[in-house]
């Protein structure tokens, strides 16, 4: 059975394709940095100034961090997470421009094709995350090399999860418009109950429950813990939660792709 050795070349080819496309679309890359930067500058600096009115007491709300320090890891994770959703958009375009048929009619295992795409897009998202991490470190304070790398690792898992979710949505939607609608419907709440902008601990129990289902929550908490030493969930639990939610998202996307016919 030649099915097994075929896995790797297909995986590698798809990851390579996504990276080549990423590198040739610089404007899109710059674009994806703008949105988080706006958050950091206007939202971050704005609230930072507002909290300063409270004086040192403000730090009590954010586990001893300044608001900028609190926000910075969330911004990095958010950058990578939103970039990850772009993977779904890639699927939509591939279907619109016909390339999806070229992939579907190949004998390569569907799982290898999709995972290659997801990993390629995750690496591309991570490159954007790294740029953002350096920028926020300059604004909020240097977290140390290991802190930075740890934060990026957490962001990478979040990107893989969002790429999988984006793909799952793209594969289930007929039109680009439908995709955009559902992504916004899914992405916005995920961002807001991720603990990126405010702590989750004081929230009502039902909102906190939602946070615990959100891969972004674990990624943000983990990144914050690794970058600035403050977290609300024990870090091993963050890792386990992130891994579990991401794995489910990836598995669901692969399962969906494996069942894809054009009609």
């Amino acid at each position: 059975m030649p099915a097994r050795p075929r896995w790797l070349p297909a995986f590698q080819a798809m990851a390579w394709r996504q990276l080549v496309r990423f590198l040739s679309a610089r404007s899109r890359v710059a674009n994806s940095l703008v949105f988080p930067l706006i958050w950091l500058l206007f939202f971050g600096l704005g609230w930072s100034a507002a909290f300063n009115v409270l004086g040192p007491a403000a730090r009590g709300i954010f586990g001893g961090l300044s608001y900028l320090e609190f926000l910075a890891p969330g911004i990095v994770v958010m950058t990578v997470f939103t970039a990850g959703f772009g993977s779904g958009l890639g699927i939509i375009w591939d279907r619109e421009f016909g390339y999806m048929k070229e992939l579907l009619v190949s004998p390569a295992p569907r799982g290898a094709l999709l995972l290659g795409r997801l990993v390629g897009d995750t690496v591309a998202a991570l490159a954007q995350g790294a740029v953002m991490a350096l920028l926020v470190s300059a604004v909020a304070g240097w977290p140390g090399v290991w802190g930075l790398l740890g934060g990026l690792a957490a962001a990478a898992a979040a990107a893989l999860a969002s790429a999988s979710l984006g793909s799952l949505i793209a594969l289930s939607m007929r039109s680009p418009e439908g995709f955009h609608m559902v992504v916004n419907l899914v992405m916005m709440p995920m961002l807001f109950i991720s603990g990126a902008f405010y702590p989750v601990d004081p929230l009502p129990a039902w909102l906190r429950m939602l946070a615990y289902l959100n891969p972004l929550y674990y990624a943000v908490d983990l990144a914050r813990g690794l970058m600035y030493g403050v977290h609300s969930t024990p870090l091993p639990l963050d890792v386990a939660g992130l891994a579990a939610v991401t794995a489910v998202a990836v598995a669901a996307a692969v399962a969906r792709f494996s069942r894809t016919y054009i009609a």
């Binding site: 297909a10 394709r17 016909g98 999806m100 190949s106």
Partner: peptide, 24 residues
């Protein structure tokens, strides 16, 4: 196929390379 199914952002070689790799 009846409609084009290529990746226009890539070169012919890159399209061929991916095609070859996903066909092992």
């Amino acid at each position: 196929f009846q409609e084009p199914t290529v990746d226009r952002d890539l070169t012919a070689w890159q399209n061929l390379y991916i095609h070859g790799r996903i066909h092992d």
